[in-house]
């Protein structure tokens, strides 16, 4: 069971890795096909956009769960000495999580709007609102992860692993 959970937890990073690998191989093939055979991959630019969105957004919740965002840890010592680290962590996680709620909902609205206009990608013809839905859902998950972390600092500090710098 825990093994299954672990596998599930590694899925987003696997998806991101896959997208990145495809992006690399596709760029290479596009250049070679174009240079040598005068036959570029027509959908390459659309694919690049799509793969980037998949890569960035599938790991965003993981980055947030692991406290992987770029921070300035200048005042860490101060908070530690004052014994406030736990409350500071609760504040920053709740702050970030709550801040994402409205934009996540808005991304969904914009995706719906895009659907109503019938927007598609130029060459792939993929409806753009699928990408919007994906981004919206993942942003909402990220918000949830951060809020849960924040609550964890308040109500279950023992469960929270120590932060790494």
């Amino acid at each position: 069971m825990s093994r299954l959970l672990k596998f599930a937890a590694s899925l987003p990073a696997l998806l991101a890795s896959f997208a990145l690998f495809v992006l690399m191989v596709m760029t290479f093939c596009d250049v070679v096909l174009r240079s040598v055979f005068n036959a570029p991959i027509e959908v390459a630019a659309d694919m690049t956009r799509l793969l980037m969105a998949i890569m960035v957004f599938s790991v965003l919740p993981v980055v947030s769960a692991k406290d992987g965002h770029i921070c300035v840890d200048l005042t860490d010592g101060m908070f530690k000495r004052a014994g406030l680290t736990r409350w500071r962590n609760a504040f920053t996680d709740l702050f970030c999580g709550l801040m994402l709620v409205l934009p996540a909902m808005r991304v969904f609205d914009l995706a719906e709007r895009s659907r109503s206009y019938g927007d598609v990608m130029e060459y792939l013809r993929l409806p753009l609102h699928y990408v919007g839905w994906f981004i919206s859902i993942v942003t909402a998950i990220t918000a949830a992860v951060l809020i849960i972390r924040g609550l964890g600092h308040i109500f279950a500090p023992k469960l929270m692993s120590p932060r790494h710098a």
Binding site: L23, A45, M52, A53, P103, R106, V107, D109, L110
Partner: peptide, 26 residues
């Protein structure tokens, strides 16, 4: 404001020119 934020979240992640960032890191 919320709409501008949401649009930037959508568009930045799909910026063709930014694809160099992950690829150079890789």
């Amino acid at each position: 404001s919320i709409s501008m934020t949401a649009r930037l979240i959508i568009d930045t992640s799909q910026d063709y020119g930014l694809s160099v960032v992950p690829l150079f890191i890789l």
